[in-house]
């Protein structure tokens, strides 16, 4: 649902003060998302933002859309239920790397298989912030924390490559310190008719300040990259020297879940009557 005018960003913020630490990447993400909503002239009453647990999970409280702050790891199934129930809504889901890639990781391939029309933002800081600094599925190998005093012995996931392999129809990466570029990626994700997975590097200034590390390494995806080429996208995702930002892959023929469902219903439905259904069981 679009309006004939943009809602200004300041009017999209609720009067709840964010709990995020000063300098947290999540502020940049929120600004970019609100900018995308405003520029797309979306009606906040027709937007639902579902989230799980962690610093990212607080996101819905700070914006004036509908929101659902659910339990740990379940933002995607919540959002899936919302989108199926009312496909006219714009549905976003917000997780962190713990919520989305650890406890909730089991939902990722299935959201991709369904191609449910959700924009999924994974705010990746490579650390558990809200529980004060444990290693996450994207933490570098050997990272020392209070929970891994001798260094982690698990290797980090590559979320972009993983979601490309799952057949996701839109895969992108943004960086909270580049809000303009991020807002554009989020806009494209919302406009994409299908499951849009966006990994957003969003550093944690308190437990793992990676701003300097990323600022040295991030580059925009080269303009000549063919974003309809999944294998080329995978090659970019696996590059180790540079960390690419932008849209890795987008399926131009993406057919969203709710459209498939409504086509199926049209094919099977005549006129529905419960009384007629009962007659099938009449003695």
């Amino acid at each position: 649902m679009t309006l004939d005018h943009p809602v200004p960003i300041k009017d999209l913020k609720s009067d709840v003060k964010p709990i995020w630490c000063p300098g947290c990447g999540d502020y940049g993400v929120m600004h970019a998302v609100l900018k995308a909503i405003s520029e797309l002239q979306l009606d906040p009453a027709h937007i639902v933002i579902a989230s799980g647990i962690g610093c990212s999970g607080r996101f819905p409280a700070f914006v004036k859309t509908y929101g659902f702050h659910g339990i740990h790891g379940r933002a995607l199934p919540l959002a899936t239920g919302v989108k199926i129930a009312n496909p006219n809504l714009t549905v976003l889901a917000v997780s962190g790397d713990g919520d989305g890639l650890s406890i909730g990781a089991g939902h990722l391939p299935h959201a991709a298989r369904r191609n449910v029309d959700i924009t999924y933002l994974v705010l990746d800081n490579a650390v558990y912030g809200l529980t004060k600094g444990q290693p996450s599925p994207t933490s570098a190998w050997g990272m020392k924390t209070k929970a891994s005093p001798y260094g982690t012995v698990e290797h980090p996931l590559n979320p972009v490559a993983m979601m490309l392999a799952c057949g996701t129809t839109f895969v992108a990466r943004g960086f909270s310190a580049r809000p303009q570029e991020l807002a554009e990626i989020v806009k494209q994700g919302i406009l994409h008719p299908g499951f849009a997975f966006i990994e957003i590097i969003s550093p944690c200034v308190t437990f793992l300040d990676t701003y300097a590390f990323y600022k040295q390494r991030v580059v925009s995806i080269p303009e000549n990259h063919d974003r309809t080429d999944r294998m080329a996208a995978l090659a970019l995702a696996f590059e180790t020297e540079k960390i690419h930002l932008g849209i890795f892959y987008q399926d131009p023929d993406s057919h969203p879940h709710h459209t498939t469902l409504s086509e199926m219903r049209q094919k099977i439905s005549g006129s529905y009557s419960l009384q007629a259904l009962l007659e099938r069981f009449r003695r």
Partner: peptide, 21 residues
């Protein structure tokens, strides 16, 4: 929806009910 597990199933149900069904 045949969900990927029971946890997904009930969370979808909660989401769909939140959206009015």
């Amino acid at each position: 929806v045949q969900a990927e597990d029971e946890i997904a199933a009930i969370n979808m149900v909660i989401g769909a009910s939140f959206a009015g069904l």
